[in-house]
Design a protein around this nucleic acid. Structure first.
Lengths: 164, 164
DNA sequence: CGAACTTACTTGACTAATCAACTAATGACT
DNA sequence: AGTCATTAGTTGATTAGTCAAGTAAGTTCG
C-alpha cells in the first residue's frame, strides 16, 4: 500500500522528496511504535530502553549524562529527567566524577542489565519481523542512502547554528 | 558518516535490520527536526502543520476530527487537544455536523491558509535540500522499500490487536 | 592570581502527550 | 419502542518533553 493511500491523499505528491519525507517519518513512527509495544509492558519507554542499551554498551565505567544524550537515536533535551526516571526505578545509578566534579557518570545496574536481557530477544524478533520484507542487500542499500541523507542534513544544521 | 560513528557504538550491529531500524528512526528524527525548524518560528509544531495541510487538502467541507487523526503522518491520540490549540489560534474552525451529531467537522480558516501559503516554499526548500544527496531514482526506490516495510508492520499491528 | 568564558548539568515553569474513563449520538436487532 | 453495541469525541489525571535561566566546576589568558 502506498503512503498516498494510507493517508488518503487525493493529489500526487508535489515532489519525489516530499513523498520520501512522508514515507520516512511515517515508517519510523511505526517502527518506534513496534519497539514501544515490546518494551512498554515492562514499564519503560523506547527512549529509556535506548539509554539502557547505551549504558550496557558503555560497560562498568559508565558515561557522563550529556555523552548519553549525544549517543541517543532520537535527540532529547530532557536527558536529566529521563535518567531521573530510570534511577528512581533502580535501573541506572549516578555518581559525580571525582576527577571532573561537573560530570555525573551514569551506570546501568544489575536490575537494568536483567531487564535488558529479558528484552533482547523480543526486540530483535519484532524489529526483524518488521523489516522482513526487505532483503539483506536492500537493507544495506537503505542504510547507505539514509547515511548519505543524514550527512547532508547535519551540514544544514551546522550552517543554521552558525548563522543563528 | 555511518550511524555507528554517529552514536559512537563500538560493536557492529548484531543484525542488518537493527542497523536499518536505527538509521531509519534517526533519519526521520532529523527530518522532523528540519521541518520543525521551519514551521516553529511561526508558532506551530510540525504536527499542527501536518493537520493544517490535511485540512487544506480536504477543502471547504472539512473533515471530522478522527478522520484527521487517521491521515496524519505520525499517529497521535491527542488529536482533540491538538486541534483545540489550532482553533485557539484561529487557524481552524470546528462545527458539529447536523446529519450526524457525533461528528465535529474541522475546517482550515483563511488565516490558516495564509500561514500555509507562507510556509509552502520554505518547507519545500528545506526538505528538498535535506534529501538532495539522493537521486530521483533512489528516492523512488527508498519509498518503495519503505512502503513494503510498512505493509508488514501494519499486519503485525493488526494481528497484535486481534490477539489482545 | 583572578576575571571572563566554557562546560556539565540542574531546576522551574510551561506545554504537550498519553491513558483511561466518560458522554452523547447512532445503528442493529429483537 | 427498547436494549445492546458501536462510533465520535471529550475530559481528567498523570507523565513526559521543552525552553530559559541558574549553579558549580573547570579552563584560558592577561
Amino acid at each position: 500500500m502506498s503512503i498516498r493511500t494510507e493517508i488518503k491523499q487525493q493529489r500526487p505528491f508535489p515532489s519525489p522528496h516530499q513523498e520520501a519525507l512522508v514515507a520516512l517519518i511515517r515508517t519510523a513512527d511505526l517502527l518506534r511504535r513496534v519497539v514501544g509495544g515490546v518494551v512498554e509492558p515492562h514499564r519503560i519507554t523506547a527512549q529509556q530502553y535506548n539509554v539502557l542499551r547505551i549504558l550496557r554498551g558503555a560497560g562498568a565505567e559508565g558515561l557522563p549524562t550529556l555523552e548519553i544524550a549525544e549517543r541517543m537515536i532520537e535527540q532529547t533535551p530532557g536527558i536529566t529527567r529521563l535518567i531521573d526516571r530510570l534511577e528512581s526505578k533502580n535501573l541506572v545509578s549516578r555518581e559525580r566524577s571525582s576527577t571532573d566534579r561537573r560530570c555525573v557518570f551514569c551506570r546501568i545496574t544489575p536490575a537494568g542489565l536483567d531487564l535488558l536481557a529479558r528484552l533482547d530477544a523480543p526486540v530483535e524478533d519484532a524489529s526483524g519481523l518488521s523489516l522482513a520484507s526487505l532483503t539483506k542487500r536492500e537493507l544495506a542499500q537503505l542504510v547507505e542512502m539514509l547515511d548519505r541523507a543524514r550527512e547532508r542534513m547535519n551540514q544544514q544544521f551546522i550552517e543554521r547554528r552558525r548563522t543563528a
